[in-house]
Amino acid sequence: MMASIIRIKVNGTKKRVEVEPRELLVDVIRDKLGLVGTKVGCETSNCGACTVIVDGRAVKSCTMFAVQADGKEITTVEGLSKDGELHPIQKAFVEKHGMQCGFCTSGMLMTAYWLLNNRRNPNDGEIKRHFSGNLCRCTGYQDIIESVKHASRLMYPKEEQIEVSQ
């Protein structure tokens, strides 16, 4: 099958990439663009380690062909920090230790980025529901939930924070 050219905007930069129709978005992101922050975990749409933002919505890049992303805007974990400064979500995960081995972390960060761009102060129940497609196999999820809540405070300091669960 002939390769095709896709045009995508990745972390704000326009890219023209030659891909085979069968290539998955995650493989193009990692192998052709060299952005290896996005991880390949289960490859079966379960774990969410490959989560990236496509046109404003968090999706699993292992379950999307690169050609399906043609013309779209993609944000990967590398797109979060600006000028060497960590994004508030990254700071929050560091400060609340929302990780252990770190393999799931970039996916967690991207789901948090999607959630917090759409909802400024999610409660525990909303966070749990939004993260049901991101698995962490090291430890519990409590520090991750705390990190997301902390990130919400860092991103939107003036918002009234709701602390009730569910």
Binding site: S45, A58, K60, M64, R129, H130, G133
Partner: peptide, 9 residues
């Protein structure tokens, strides 16, 4: 259905 990331696609 499935999880929110799958529902997005």
């Amino acid at each position: 259905i499935a999880d929110p990331l799958i529902r997005n696609a």
